[in-house]
Simulated scan of single mutants.
Amino acid sequence: MRIYPAIDIKHGACVRLTQGLADQETEYFNDPLEPARLFKAAGSEWVHVVDLDGAFDGKPSNLAVVEGIAALGLKVEFGGGIRELADAEALLAAGVSRIVVGTRACKDHAFVEELVRRWPEQLAIGIDAREGKVAVRGWVEVTDMPAISFACKLAEAGVQRIIYTDISTDGMMVGPNFEGQEEMLSAVPIQIIASGGVSDLHDLVVYSEMARKFDNLDGVIVGKALYEKKFTVKEALDVAARA
């Protein structure tokens, strides 16, 4: 089970949003490279980067920051505004190890198939859900599409990995929606990265136990709990290693 420390970028700073709401923002670092250096020093191999400006505007806009993070030697999983093949190509050329596509993947199945054809190993589809329904455009628009139905459709298209985020718990520090994550793990055979709501080390222990039951639990994204110093990256990695 991998740990993916999260860095969310908005207007050049490292921030966290509560339930994805643009007006519920807390800034933690003026320079996103600072937490990236700390995560690497603690032993993290990966970092999960979200371009919030890109997610809201529809095009990635923090490429220079991403290049800087990748140059530190971290594997970068990047999402936020990737809605054209050219955007994906530019990010991969900048050193991104894995691209995360959400909004357009929900609306354009042919686009998903082309992404799978070009970059099967470097692709993850982000499924963000509120009450089990897919949300898009930086979580501001909730569709009628059930998240599990969408995941099954992606699996049929050959997608190898999804990131499943429960919006209602994200940034709330109330614990993950374990039931929802387990339903998703049971529904599709592809790799799943769980996201949303991790508030303490016990949550990661629960996920580590879940990883023993489901071999398709790739890892867990951790954000606000790290910034609020509920535990360290090293402690999280130690829990994950025991899984």
Rank of each mutant, 00 (worst) to 15 (best):
T143S: 13
T143F: 00
M145F: 04
P146H: 06
P146A: 04
P146T: 02
P146R: 09
A147W: 01
I148G: 13
S149W: 01
S149F: 01
S149I: 01
F150K: 06
F150D: 12
A151F: 01
A151W: 01
C152K: 14
C152Q: 15
C152Y: 01
L154Y: 02
L154A: 10
L154M: 10
A155P: 05
E156D: 14
E156V: 06
A157E: 09
A157L: 13
G158D: 08
Q160I: 00
Q160N: 04
Q160W: 06
R161D: 04
I162G: 12
I162P: 13
I163T: 11
I163C: 11
T165V: 08
T165K: 02
S168E: 15
S168D: 15
S168P: 09
S168H: 10
D170L: 13
G171T: 05
M172E: 10
M172K: 00
M173C: 00
V174F: 00
V174M: 04
G175Y: 07
G175T: 03
G175F: 04
G175A: 07
P176E: 04
P176V: 08
F178W: 05
F178S: 09
F178I: 03
E179G: 10
E179S: 11
E179P: 01
Q181N: 15
Q181F: 15
Q181C: 14
E182Y: 03
E183Y: 04
E183T: 10
E183R: 15
M184N: 05
M184Q: 02
L185M: 10
L185C: 10
S186D: 13
S186C: 13
I190K: 05
Q191W: 12
I192R: 10
I192G: 14
I193L: 02
A194M: 03
G196M: 12
G196R: 03
G196C: 10
G196E: 10
G197Q: 11
G197F: 05
G197R: 02
V198M: 08
V198I: 14
S199D: 03
D200L: 00
D200N: 13
L201H: 06
H202V: 13
D203T: 05
